[in-house]
């Protein structure tokens, strides 16, 4: 491009200050609004987990009895049927054995 072989160029300064501010503002908003939106949805990521956790603890607080050994129905089960924890019947019905699945099974 040693020799200019054109006579005309575009006037490079054809925007007024007001237009400039307006356009820059529009572009900023165009980029900022989605960023704000994505940030807000990302921070709410675990809200549903926290809500479920909180309300399950609330169910605990509401309960009249809060320890397992005070559950009268469990006591009745052991009295009428199961005997006591780790009894023979408990071992049979409430306990299990695990299998090594690293060996081929079926």
């Amino acid at each position: 491009m040693s020799e200019q072989d054109y006579k005309y160029i575009e006037n490079p300064l054809h925007i007024t200050r007001r237009e400039f501010i307006t356009i820059t503002g529009i572009i900023t908003a165009f980029l900022a609004l989605p960023s704000i939106w994505i940030r807000s949805v990302a921070t709410a990521n675990n809200d549903y987990i926290k809500a479920r956790t909180k309300n399950l603890y609330q169910d605990d607080v509401q309960s009249k009895i809060r320890v397992s050994h005070a559950n009268k129905s469990v006591a009745r089960y052991y009295k009428e049927f199961g005997g006591k924890p780790l009894s023979r019947l408990s071992e049979e019905l409430l306990h299990t054995k695990y299998i090594n699945r690293t060996k081929a099974l079926s």
Binding site: D5, Y6, K7, Y8, I9, E10
Partner: peptide, 10 residues
């Protein structure tokens, strides 16, 4: 092409 009446568009 060699016309001198050219505008630099791009």
């Amino acid at each position: 092409m060699h016309s001198k009446n050219m505008i630099l568009k791009h």
